[in-house]
Amino acid sequence: MIHTQLGRTGLRISRLVLGTVNFGGRVEEPEAHRLMDHALALGVNTVDTANTYGWRVHKGHTEEVIGRWLAQRPGRRDQVVLATKVGDPMGDGPNDQGLSARNIVASCEASLRRLGTDHIDLYQMHHVDRSVGWDEVWQAMDLLVGQGKVRYVGSSNFAGWDIASAQEAARRRHTLGLVSEQCVYNLVTRHAELEVIPAAVANGLGVLVWSPLHGGLLSGVLRKTREHDAVKSAQGRAAEALARHRDTVEAYEKLCAEHGTDPAQAGLAWTLERPGVSAAVIGPRTEQHLDGALAALTTPLPEPLRAGMERLFPPIGRGGQAPDAWLS
């Protein structure tokens, strides 16, 4: 496994991050524990979750699953970079969501209890909350860092200007501020290239990519459908996107076949090669899925395949960063 520093910090994370959104409902607890065992054995030292994950059972279920796994073996917690998130609704009350100081602190305490640990390595704001001022957000986060309950703070699904605003407020307080941004980025959805990734790099943030295969759209969905093997790729965002991009996806799968490469491996390898990307958050349902992701990390894309992928899924505008991407 290849490890890298997370942005401007000294924290080293695996370039593949084990995402846990499928735990509970799609991956039951015994298999989830086996997946985490397998990931750790392969050197995947970073586990990403959120306080709302596991909602198919109940919100918080996934953190509980991870907590029971951590408790199985002494010393395991020290081997893992543990990331979770705050901000999405955890209840029906008016203060059960968002980035108020009250909710940040209360949610952290609840996550620590479910995870069975005394600290969170990377505490991420799940979405920006523009109804709350940054001084309030940083007051809460600085409190948690000062208490030793949080090591680093990250963002998720922020715009480029949100990252800049958050960092400017942190600088005024003479604190570290954000160390990472977790954003959606893949061949189909390349908007992050315009401002989010440039803003992250300019401010010293690592970039964690979620949905590197667009919810399974780039994993060989047409072949899997023919073979009656499509699960995640036949649902949700991938199914909606397939209706719009079927011809392109068909050409993509044909291109990968011509190069003897699995579509999922090619799509993930492309994302991991992109400038500014620290790691990809993957959501495997089986150990075999995890092994396939590892192959994407260790097998460079042949240039003819990479060029063909760029032709099928071109960047926005002229490519590159805004505003140059928009210039005609």
Rank of each mutant, 00 (worst) to 15 (best):
residue 186 N to W: 00
residue 199 A to N: 06
residue 168 E to F: 04
residue 210 W to G: 02
residue 191 H to C: 02
residue 173 R to E: 01
residue 173 R to P: 00
residue 191 H to F: 13
residue 184 V to S: 01
residue 171 R to S: 07
residue 220 G to V: 02
residue 195 E to V: 12
residue 225 T to M: 15
residue 180 S to E: 08
residue 197 I to C: 11
residue 220 G to D: 01
residue 177 G to D: 05
residue 170 A to G: 03
residue 190 R to Y: 09
residue 196 V to H: 12
residue 200 A to N: 05
residue 207 V to A: 08
residue 173 R to W: 05
residue 179 V to E: 10
residue 172 R to K: 10
residue 178 L to A: 02
residue 195 E to A: 15
residue 195 E to I: 05
residue 182 Q to S: 08
residue 211 S to Q: 13
residue 177 G to H: 07
residue 218 L to K: 04
residue 203 N to T: 03
residue 217 L to T: 02
residue 174 H to Q: 14
residue 197 I to V: 15
residue 218 L to A: 04
residue 222 L to G: 05
residue 179 V to P: 02
residue 213 L to A: 03
residue 176 L to A: 14
residue 200 A to C: 06
residue 204 G to Q: 09
residue 219 S to R: 05
residue 182 Q to E: 14
residue 226 R to P: 01
residue 192 A to W: 12
residue 185 Y to R: 07
residue 179 V to F: 08
residue 205 L to D: 10
residue 225 T to H: 15
residue 204 G to E: 08
residue 186 N to S: 02
residue 168 E to T: 10
residue 193 E to Y: 12
residue 168 E to Y: 07
residue 209 V to H: 02
residue 223 R to G: 13
residue 216 G to N: 08
residue 204 G to M: 09
residue 180 S to A: 14
residue 187 L to C: 01
residue 201 V to A: 14
residue 224 K to H: 14
residue 221 V to C: 11
residue 206 G to H: 13
residue 176 L to N: 04
residue 207 V to T: 12
residue 187 L to Q: 01
residue 177 G to W: 06
residue 222 L to D: 04
residue 228 H to M: 14
residue 219 S to M: 05
residue 168 E to H: 08
residue 228 H to G: 13
residue 221 V to D: 03
residue 174 H to M: 09
residue 207 V to D: 11
residue 223 R to H: 14
residue 183 C to A: 06
residue 218 L to P: 00
residue 209 V to P: 07
residue 227 E to Y: 10
residue 215 G to E: 10
